[in-house]
Each structure stands twice: as C-alpha cells, then as structure tokens.
Simulated assay, not measured.
Amino acid sequence: MNPRLTKSQQRTICSQLGRFKLQLLYKASIHGFTGAAFHQQCDNRSPTVSVGYNNSGYVFGGYTKQPFSQSGQYVNDDQAFLFTFSGEKLLKYPVTSSGHAVKMIANAGPYFGEALVLVNGSQAVVYSNPGNYYNFTAAEMHGNDLNLTECEVYQVEGNTVCGQQKLTTSYPDSFSLSFSHYTPQTQTYPHSVTQARVLLIGPVGAGKSSFFNSVNSVFRGHVTSQAISGSSTTSLTTQFRSYSVKAGRGGKPLPIILCDTMGLEESKGAGLDIDDLSSILKGHLPDCYQVLHYISMTLNV
C-alpha cells in the first residue's frame, strides 16, 4: 500500500509525537469504507494516527495512544488530539475531556469523542460536531466537506530523536554507575589492570557480535551496529576484534573490553582455529588480527 500522506506531512505529525515512523495499517480505498474493515486492520494496534481526505483538498484526523476495539465504550487518553493541515502547517486541537477522548464503535472508523468520526456508519462520510470534547471549527477542520475520498490509519512505530532510534532500558542508574566504577582485580598486581577483557565464544550464528552491539547500545543510549552481524551459514566475523564499550555519546571507555572472533564449526578446518584460540587466551593477538582459517580459505592453502 502506498500512503497518501506525504513525507513532509508525516514528518510534521511525528514532530508532535517525538517518534519517527508511521506504518500504514488501513486504507479505505483498498480495505473498504466500513467499520468492519477498519477494525479488522486496526484493532489492538497503538498508538495510531487516523487521517481523512476530501475533495476540497483537506487533510485532517486525530491521534490516540489507545488501541482500537469494538467495546462500545469511551477510553481515556489525555494525549489525544485532532488536527488539520493548513498548507504545510499543522493545526492541533487537544482533547478537552480525556475520559471521552475516543469511543470504540463497531459500525464506524476512528471515533474521536462525539466530535469527529471517520467512515461514519460504514460509509465514506465524516461526522463532525465541534465542541464535543474537542474544540475546532468545521470550516477550518475540513472545509464543511463531509464526503471522504480516502481514509488512512497509521501505527506510530519506534521511539526516536532527530531520526535516530532511541534506546529505552530498564537498567537503574545505580547499575550503570557501579559498572562504570568497576575495577578489575588481580592477585599479583592489584589495580594494575584498568580494563577486563571478555572473550565471546560460540558456534556460528550464536549472536556473539549481536550481543556486543546490544551491550554497546545500552550504554551508548541509542542503537549501534559497530560489530558486523547477520545471518549466514559461515562466520561473518573473520578477524579477532576488541571492542571498547563507552558510556554515552563521546563518553569515556568503561572498564570492560568485549572480544569477538570467528564462530566455532563442527567441520575440520572450519571456524575458529584452536591455535588462534590459544593465542587469544594468552593475549598474543592484536586487534583486527585475521584468523588463520580465514587466511587459509582465501589463499586456498
């Protein structure tokens, strides 16, 4: 399905939500101008942006964080709002009674309070009654044109800042603080080691590189993909790599280094070579060292 909402309009709406992507769920011209079609595509999905279009060129609709259903009841949403575009400018009308923000009606599309209903009565029409839990003027909202040429519902996906996906973590600040102040201990020379090295070992496809990316993302505060990862029958990692984990963007390295290398394989002469593994454990291999097996395969020796 191709969205009718332009990229510019999508960005304008997203700027109100603090989120990044709109995923089209329902398009009336394809799925049908009926409440049943709308609910089949959109029930239990949230948050959503619903958009109506008419022959007069108006683009208008509403946002709710609540999932749609067919309960026949009002749902509470203190963040709900209606909107219309005036050129590229978004005019926003917040809900005035959060307990009546959205009503879950089976025989209609998105039903905002008693103020604005798209695909009303399972027809390509709009029900408009300004002042009922949302304050707007009909002329400003839809130009008094109540016939729909299209209706779309988008799910709001992701949690982003400036187009970059923001990572939300449940780790308490105390954990991050204690981890950043961790000091590796050695029996012979206490405090002589500033960073502990952790070697990630496992079969091909176990997710060693993905594990590092996840740990790094948690402490950076946003999703990163520094280590090469993916799905393959052979190891995507062909070098011994030492990755330092940093606290935040441009932050100081934490007292841990995660070491990644080729995956283990059952076939003889495949995967991580035992000699390389021994050298890694003894600390003899530098970062970016090309493992022996990969060199042998490349040179056909």
Rank of each mutant, 00 (worst) to 15 (best):
M1Q: 07
P3F: 10
R4S: 13
Q9R: 14
Q10K: 08
R11C: 01
T12E: 12
I13D: 04
C14T: 09
Q16M: 08
L17I: 05
G18Q: 06
F20G: 14
K21R: 15
I30Y: 09
I30P: 00
I30A: 12
F33N: 08
G35C: 00
F38I: 06
Q41E: 14
D43R: 10
P47F: 03
P47M: 03
V49E: 01
S50W: 01
V59W: 04
G62L: 06
Y63W: 01
K65N: 07
S69R: 08
S69C: 09
Q70E: 10
S71K: 01
G72A: 05
V75H: 03
A80Y: 01
L90Y: 05
G99W: 02
A101V: 04
I105K: 08
Y111Q: 03
E114N: 13
V117I: 14
V119Q: 05
A124T: 00
A124R: 02
A124C: 02
V125C: 03
Y127E: 04
N129Y: 08
N132D: 11
Y133Q: 12
T137F: 02
M141F: 15
G143N: 08
N144P: 01
E152H: 06
Q155K: 04
G158M: 01
G158V: 05
V161Y: 10
V161R: 10
G163M: 06
G163T: 07
Q164V: 15
Q164K: 13
L167S: 04
D173H: 07
S174K: 12
S174T: 14
S174V: 11
F179M: 14
F179C: 09
F179T: 13
F179N: 05
S180P: 03
S180V: 06
H181M: 13
Y182K: 03
Y182H: 13
H191W: 08
V193W: 00
L199A: 12
L199H: 03
G202L: 08
G202F: 09
V204Y: 06
G205L: 12
K208R: 13
F212M: 06
S217V: 05
V218K: 07
T224E: 15
I228S: 09
S229D: 13
S231E: 10
S231H: 12
L236Q: 13
T237Q: 10
T238A: 02
T238Q: 12
F240A: 00
S244R: 15
S244W: 01
K246S: 11
A247R: 14
R249T: 11
K252A: 15
I256W: 07
L258E: 04
G263D: 05
G263F: 09
L264K: 04
E265D: 03
E266P: 01
A270V: 03
D276M: 01
S278Q: 10
K282Y: 02
L292G: 00
Y294R: 10
I295Y: 12
N300S: 11
